[in-house]
């Protein structure tokens, strides 16, 4: 009986150990992969149209979802924010509240999450499928490095698109807040923009938001290309890699956001 228990515990421990070493090993491989992508990146820029194409797929095709989401998030923030602020007679502060929430947090984070599920999953699926159908192996046999030809342009396409999408999300959100706050609720437009300008600083509020979106872009892009490249070359392998891209990217965005916020806004009150 106790022997059975011991075996059970041991096998559980072994599984735990295997999971841990597997995860750490994969992290190491992913880091090595990132370096490989960076080293081979000059290729992606020498052949600029390859990267432009990926900006088109990652950025331009994400525009509709980003702009629509930004608009609605801004409108909801405006409704909810006004409801609370007006209790304290601070309804005119709506502009600054919405702008700070969007520029500092919601813009980069929500745009990042949408980007991961719209563009990141597509990148993973595409690379995974190219691997499954031996397109990557074929490239290798043609003496063309698939990391330089396929992975690096997609990586940079994502990295370049993400900050632009986040800025568009924030801008659209503020526009949505303007529609609801000024046009529907009837806050004075001058107060709305004036409070916003007085309370939001380009440095550090806007720049920190941009830094965040750049970091999220790097994280989502490397996760997406890595999961695709590392996918098992089967239909199930590609589908589970796509799911992993969305899950890991989302967690990475939220965790990185916490860490960066802690560093960025800690010193401000000094």
């Amino acid at each position: 009986m106790s022997a059975e228990l011991a075996t059970g515990v041991f096998s559980w421990l072994r599984r735990l150990g295997a999971t841990v070493t597997g995860t750490v090993g994969k992290l190491g491989y992913a880091s090595r992969f990132l370096i490989m992508v960076l080293v081979l990146s000059p290729h992606a820029f020498r052949r600029l149209h390859l990267t432009l194409r990926e900006i088109y797929f990652a950025g331009v095709l994400s525009l509709v979802i980003i702009l629509m989401s930004g608009l609605f998030v801004g409108m909801v923030l405006s409704l909810q924010g006004y409801e609370v602020l007006s209790r304290y007679g601070a309804g005119e502060q709506l502009g600054i509240m919405v702008a700070l929430s969007l520029v500092r947090e919601l813009g980069p984070v929500v745009a990042g999450l949408l980007f991961a599920s719209r563009a990141g999953s597509a990148i993973t699926a595409e690379i995974g499928l190219m691997k499954t159908t031996e397109q990557l192996a074929a490239m290798e046999m043609m003496a063309v490095d698939p990391v330089a030809r396929v992975v690096a342009p997609r990586f940079w396409g994502g990295v370049i698109s993400m900050p632009l999408l986040a800025a568009l999300f924030s801008a659209m959100g503020i526009f949505g807040a303007y529609i609801v706050g000024v046009r529907l609720i009837g806050i004075d437009a001058g107060a709305f923009w004036g409070q916003m300008q007085a309370g939001v600083d380009f440095w550090p509020d806007v720049t920190n938001g941009i830094i965040k979106s750049v970091v999220f872009g790097l994280a989502v892009s490397i996760i997406s290309v890595f999961e695709g490249y590392d996918a098992k070359p089967t239909a199930e392998g590609v589908s589970s890699a796509t799911t992993r891209t969305v899950v890991i990217s989302s967690l990475a965005i939220l965790a990185l956001d916490f860490v960066m916020t802690a560093f960025m806004f800690r010193g401000i009150g000094a």
């Binding site: 702008a99 520029v103 800025a167 924030s170 801008a171 503020i174 923009w193 916003m196 300008q197 007085a198 939001v200 600083d201 380009f202 509020d205 806007v206 938001g209």
Partner: peptide
């Protein structure tokens, strides 16, 4: 964001 929202 820099000009209209912030105070660049």
């Amino acid at each position: 964001l820099g000009l209209k929202v912030g105070n660049l």
